[in-house]
Structure formats: C-alpha cells, structure tokens
Amino acid sequence: MSLSGELLPAGLLVLLAAACLLDRRLYRACLSFIAFALVMALAWWRLAAPWLALAEALLGALLTGMALLHGLGRAGSPSPLPPHDHHRRPRHQAAARWLAVLVWLALAGAAVWGVSGSGGLIAPGDGARRPLLAAGLAIMGLGLWAFAHHLHLLRRLLAFNVLGSGVFLLLAGLAGPVVEVQGLILVGLVVALVGSVLGSALLRRLHERDGRVTLGDEPEAGP
C-alpha cells in the first residue's frame, strides 16, 4: 500500500468526522457518522484486517447507526426529537473544558511522537501508517472538542463514537494490525455499541418524560 493510497481514506475520515460533529442538523450528522464508520471499515480492510472491517461495518456502521437514528426517533417510532440542536454552552464553562481537551491532545501527540519517532514501530511498512496516526490524532481532537462542547446528548454520543474511532486509528497506527490490536478494537466496538444503544434509549426516555435533550446542570468539567 502506497502512501498516497492511504492519504485519501485518512483525509476522507477527518472530513466526515468534522461533518458529523459540526452539523447542527441531527439527522444529517447521524448519516455522516454512518458514512464515517463505513470508511473506517474500508481502512481496516486496507490494513489487511478483514474481520475487523466486517465487525466495524456491522457493529459500528449498521447497529450503532441504527441505535443513533432510533434515538433521534427516525427509525420508525413516535415522538421524534427536534431535528435541530439549538443548545449553546454558556461561556463561563468553556475555559476548563478547553484546558482538558488541550492537555489530553498534547499528551497524546507528544507520546505518539515519542513512540513513532524513536523507531519503536514494530511492523515494517510503518510509513504507510503515518497518515493513520495523523488522522487518528485529528479525529480524536475533533471528538474531544465536540464531547466537551456540545450539550445535546445525541451529539455527545456521536462525539464519543468519533473519539473512540480516533483512538482505534491511533492504536492501529502505533502497533500495526496485530492480533492484540484487533482484540482491543473489537472489545472497544462492542462497548461503543452497547453505550450508544443504552444512551439513545435513555435519551428517548428522558425526552418522552420531560422533553429535555440535555443533562441540565453540569457539575463537572470535561473528561
């Protein structure tokens, strides 16, 4: 696999992640996420991990996508959520969240630099994994920012899923598609799916009971 052949899916992933997280129209954001997960599956395929690609397409794109759409009220259920997200986070909460995001990103970036710069990458052909690392970091940054910034619960679930995918990309980029990595990503995919299903179901119940789509008062600063 050539470097330019990897740049295209990596760039596409970042674009789709941004589209998914920046769109205030929730339905479109969910569709972007499904497309994002499908491109992730393609990336696993190109890394010679076909089972992982299958799991990503099935668990990540199909089931998680369905869970999110169900949470939105599109997958055949009454009382859908409002299609737009109008919530804005008050400014005074922003500083601590930005700090947490930047600290996380700086730590991760420095460590990734340390691992990949010291020739510690194990498998040959690690040059082709450089775009994955860069895309992973960018997607993780987007996901973190969105998770810390958004109030709407569906958007926070989307942000969590994107953040998770960014971590998976970093994992695969750092250690190559070895069997340990595939095991970790598989567990991560199942957890993200269960979390999304649980979160969407809870969001629907909250919305049905008292019409809210946010957690209300936030006692804690970011991750």
């Binding site: 990734v112 691992v115 926070r156 994992l171 970790l184 991750p223």
Partner: peptide
C-alpha cells in the same frame, strides 16, 4: 454512562501507547 465511556477511551489510549512502545 458518558463519563465511564470517556474514561475507558482514556484507558484505551494509554494501552495503545504501551502496546506501541
């Protein structure tokens, strides 16, 4: 749920770094 999920992603990133190193 949200905090636990993000906590586990921080954990997974740490594991990724150890596995990579």
């Amino acid at each position: 749920l949200l905090y636990a999920l993000v906590g586990s992603l921080a954990w997974l990133l740490g594991v990724a770094l150890l596995l990579g190193a």
